[in-house]
Amino acid sequence: MSANFDAFHQAILQLNPRVTQLEWDYFQQGLTEHTLAPKTFFIEADKPNQLLGFVTRGLIRGYYTTEAGEEMTTIFVSENNWVTDYPSLLMNKPSRYNFQCLEPTTLITVSYGHIQQGYERFVGFERNGRLIAEAILQQQQQRIESFQFDSAEQRYLDFIGQNPDLFNRISLTHLSSFLGIERPSLSRIRRKIVGL
């Protein structure tokens, strides 16, 4: 087993330590390793997404494009994190988002069809799917609540506190879009914090 497959296996075990060897053997049959160059899309807007991905190396940015042509960043996905567009995956509808590599990126993917077959074959397999979905949902909920309850400065502080390894890997333009802060305002917040 490659180191990337092993990282995926460890992520599954971390979510669900009760995974049996039979379940893992089945899961592994559906895994594919991808190496993507910067600017390559893992998921493209207006196309259905049928893959659940796990990043073992690199960085992906999720975003949508407004009617005015502005790119609005919704997520950054780095090593040891899950990546997919769940509404597109579950409903077999075109994605509304682009997921584009910012760095050379290695992913392990599994198709939703393979996961569904696992649900039918193994009683405990649904637990894996539920726990992965919960991990992604928690991340999305945290982002929604940050816009509802936190100031721009607090969103910035939370981001750098929770993602210290990402800070020097993403542009200020992408970061300001993700935080919902105009770039000049983000620069002012950064200067203020450095001056404290």
Score class of each variant (00 low, 15 high):
residue 124 G to D: 08
residue 116 Q to R: 09
residue 108 I to A: 02
residue 129 G to P: 02
residue 145 E to F: 15
residue 144 I to T: 14
residue 140 Q to C: 07
residue 110 V to Q: 04
residue 137 L to K: 10
residue 123 V to D: 08
residue 130 R to H: 12
residue 120 E to Q: 15
residue 120 E to A: 13
residue 124 G to T: 08
residue 124 G to K: 05
residue 137 L to E: 10
residue 153 E to V: 11
residue 128 N to L: 11
residue 135 A to E: 12
residue 144 I to G: 04
residue 112 Y to R: 00
residue 139 Q to P: 00
residue 146 S to G: 10
residue 123 V to Y: 13
residue 113 G to E: 12
residue 133 A to W: 01
residue 121 R to V: 02
residue 152 A to L: 08
residue 136 I to Y: 06
residue 147 F to P: 04
residue 149 F to P: 02
residue 134 E to H: 08
residue 123 V to A: 14
residue 132 I to V: 08
residue 115 I to H: 04
residue 126 E to V: 10
residue 148 Q to M: 15
residue 147 F to I: 14
residue 146 S to V: 09
residue 127 R to K: 15
residue 121 R to C: 00
residue 149 F to V: 15
residue 125 F to V: 03
residue 133 A to F: 05
residue 131 L to D: 15
residue 113 G to D: 13
residue 129 G to C: 08
residue 118 G to P: 02
residue 125 F to W: 04
residue 121 R to H: 11
residue 137 L to H: 12
residue 142 Q to D: 07
residue 130 R to G: 04
residue 135 A to C: 08
residue 111 S to Y: 03
residue 138 Q to W: 09
residue 126 E to G: 10
residue 124 G to H: 06
residue 119 Y to K: 07
residue 119 Y to V: 02
residue 111 S to A: 09
residue 115 I to R: 01
residue 133 A to G: 08
residue 131 L to P: 09
residue 147 F to Q: 03
residue 148 Q to E: 11
residue 134 E to T: 14
residue 111 S to N: 11
residue 121 R to T: 05
residue 121 R to I: 03
residue 117 Q to M: 09
residue 109 T to A: 12
residue 124 G to A: 13
residue 121 R to F: 04
residue 142 Q to S: 14
residue 123 V to T: 13
residue 126 E to W: 01
residue 141 Q to I: 10
residue 133 A to Y: 04
residue 114 H to R: 06
residue 124 G to F: 03
residue 118 G to W: 01
residue 135 A to W: 04
residue 118 G to S: 07
residue 145 E to V: 11
residue 153 E to M: 09
residue 151 S to K: 06
residue 146 S to E: 03
residue 118 G to T: 03
residue 134 E to M: 12
residue 145 E to P: 01
residue 134 E to L: 01
residue 118 G to H: 06
residue 126 E to L: 06
residue 145 E to S: 12
residue 132 I to E: 00
residue 143 R to W: 06
residue 113 G to N: 10
residue 152 A to W: 01
residue 142 Q to R: 14
residue 112 Y to S: 03
residue 137 L to Y: 10
residue 119 Y to G: 05
residue 139 Q to Y: 14
residue 147 F to N: 00
residue 136 I to C: 00
residue 150 D to G: 01
residue 117 Q to F: 00
residue 112 Y to V: 11
residue 129 G to W: 05
residue 116 Q to P: 03
residue 143 R to K: 15
residue 119 Y to H: 13
residue 148 Q to S: 08
